[in-house]
C-alpha cells in the first residue's frame, strides 16, 4: 500500500489520474473502518487532508459551494442558516468525534444508501462538483447515486465540492435508528419547502438501493397545495393531503429486510416521518417558528 500526500488540489488530481484505484481519504470515518477490519486493501491511499481548500466553503449566489472535506461539525455550527436540512442531518451523524472528521464529500464518495447527508441534499437540491485532470463537471445529486455504494464518479475523478441550494424556506430531516445517538439510519426522510417556486422536495435514505426523491409524493403535494391555495393563505395542509403525501412517500421506498430493520417497517416509518416533517416545516413556514430546539 502506498500513501499519497498531495499538498494541492492539482497534485491530488494528478495522483488520481496516475492511480485510478487510489482510495481518497479525508476524515477516514468510512475508509479506516474498512482497513481496520481488513475489508479493503487499496493499492494507494490518497490523503486529501492537506488540500486546505477542501475544508472551505463559499457563498455562490443562491448556492453554497461546500468543500468536499468540510466536517459535519462545521456545517452544524456555521451553515445551519443557509443549509438547515443538511445541518439537521449532520447532527445525526455518528458521534461528536465523527462529526469532527466526517464530511459530505466523504458521504457522497461512499454512496451508502444509509448516508445521512443524501436525503437532505436531495430535498434541498444539490450538484456534485467532480473533477479530474480531464476537466470539471457538475452532477445533479439525483444522478450521482447509481447503486448500493456506487456513484457516478469516473475512476480518475475526485469530489471537489458540493453545490447546495440555499434554503428559501423551512427544511426538516428525520432519521430512525434503534438508539438515541451514534446510530446508522434504519431509514431517513428529508423535506424542504421552496416557497420561491412553491414546491416541496424530498429525500429518502436507507429505504432503497440508493437515496431517492419521492417524486410522485412531491408532485401530488405540489398540486394539492396549489389547488388548496395553501401557499397563498398559509392555511394548514389539509389532513387528507398530508396523509396521501405520507402514503406516496412510503410507496416511493424499495426497501429490503436486513439486520437493521424490516422492509415493512422502513415503508411505514418513512410515511410517518413524511407526515411529521411536512407538518413541522409547514408550521415553520406559516408561523416563522421552529418546533425543535437545536441545542
Amino acid at each position: 500500500m502506498d500513501f499519497l500526500r498531495p499538498a494541492r488540489w492539482e497534485e491530488a488530481l494528478a495522483a488520481k489520474a496516475e492511480h485510478p484505484a487510489a482510495v481518497p481519504i479525508a476524515g477516514g470515518t468510512d475508509v479506516m473502518v474498512e482497513i481496520n477490519f481488513d475489508h479493503r486493501r487499496p493499492s494507494h491511499l490518497l490523503d486529501l487532508t492537506r488540500v486546505t481548500e477542501l475544508y472551505t466553503w463559499q457563498d455562490a449566489g443562491d448556492r453554497v459551494r461546500l468543500g468536499a472535506a468540510v466536517p459535519y461539525a462545521r456545517v452544524i455550527e456555521r451553515l445551519a442558516g443557509e443549509l438547515p436540512g443538511l445541518a439537521l442531518a449532520a447532527r445525526t451523524v455518528g458521534s461528536p468525534q465523527i462529526r469532527n472528521r466526517g464530511s459530505v464529500g466523504g458521504n457522497l464518495g461512499a454512496a451508502s444508501p444509509a448516508g445521512d447527508s443524501h436525503p437532505a441534499l436531495l430535498a434541498a437540491g444539490a450538484e456534485v462538483e467532480a473533477e479530474s485532470v480531464r476537466g470539471t463537471r457538475l452532477i445533479p445529486v439525483e444522478e450521482f447515486y447509481t447503486g448500493v455504494k456506487r456513484n457516478a464518479l469516473a475512476p480518475d475523478e475526485l469530489i471537489r465540492a458540493v453545490h447546495v441550494r440555499k434554503a428559501t424556506g423551512p427544511q426538516q430531516f428525520s432519521k430512525v435508528g434503534t438508539r438515541n445517538a451514534m446510530v446508522i439510519a434504519v431509514c431517513a426522510f428529508a423535506l424542504a419547502l421552496h416557497p420561491d417556486t412553491r414546491t416541496v422536495r424530498t429525500g429518502i435514505g436507507s429505504a432503497a438501493p440508493t437515496p431517492v426523491r419521492a417524486r410522485t409524493a412531491e408532485d401530488f403535494l405540489n398540486a394539492a397545495l396549489a389547488e388548496a391555495r395553501c401557499w397563498d393563505t398559509g392555511a394548514p395542509v389539509p389532513p387528507a393531503v398530508a396523509a396521501e403525501f405520507a402514503r406516496l412517500a412510503s410507496a416511493a421506498c424499495r426497501p429490503i429486510d436486513d439486520v437493521r430493520g424490516s422492509a415493512a417497517y422502513r415503508r411505514h416509518a418513512v410515511g410517518v416521518m413524511a407526515r411529521r416533517t411536512l407538518a413541522w416545516a409547514w408550521e415553520q413556514h406559516t408561523t416563522g417558528e421552529g418546533t425543535a430546539r437545536c441545542a
Partner: peptide, 19 residues
C-alpha cells in the same frame, strides 16, 4: 419548543412529542 434529547429518537428528530 421540544428538546429532542429528551424524546424518543433523540437528536434524530423523529418526534416533537407526536405519538
Amino acid at each position: 419548543s421540544a428538546d429532542l434529547r429528551a424524546l424518543p429518537g433523540g437528536v434524530s428528530n423523529t418526534s416533537h412529542g407526536e405519538g
